[in-house]
């Protein structure tokens, strides 16, 4: 039923939707690729070991630090690649919000640029609201 979408009269902002879809596709591809690479590296490095006991995770916390990820990447550590990929995946919708700010701004839609910016601020605040 999408056949008529291009001739949709109201959606002069069709380009906005296409732009957002592109951003999402881009982020998704990159993060899934990096995560998969990390998975293979991890299996190569640890595949022969016993599978991890997930039940032991109870109460265990593993805050992910950017510095440790960077160190791990340099050493080709699979886990670090997975962490980077996961991080990029979480960043993908955030980039999408950023792209929508841009899209509203170039259409001089100040109200919605502001609303989208609010969402971005909330997202970033959530990321840095490290407890304790």
């Amino acid at each position: 039923m999408n056949t008529n979408s291009i001739s949709n009269p109201i959606s002069n902002g069709r380009q906005t939707e296409i732009l957002l879809a592109k951003v999402l596709l881009f982020g998704l591809k990159i993060s899934l690729f990096i995560v998969t690479v990390g998975g293979f590296l991890f299996l190569k490095q640890h595949g022969a070991e016993e599978p991890p006991a997930y039940a032991m995770l109870i109460g265990q916390i593993n805050p992910i630090k950017i510095s440790t990820i960077l160190d791990g990447l340099r050493q080709g550590d699979g886990i670090a690649f997975i962490e980077l990929g996961l991080f990029l995946l979480v960043a993908t919708p955030v980039m999408r919000v950023g792209a929508s700010i841009y899209a509203f701004a170039i259409r001089k839609d100040a109200t919605y640029a502001l609303i989208a910016s609010t969402v971005l601020v909330i997202l970033i605040a959530g990321l840095f609201s490290t407890p304790r």
Partner: peptide
Amino acid sequence: FSKGYIEPTLAL
């Protein structure tokens, strides 16, 4: 993430 509840080997 910031609370450390994302376990890479599980999330993957």
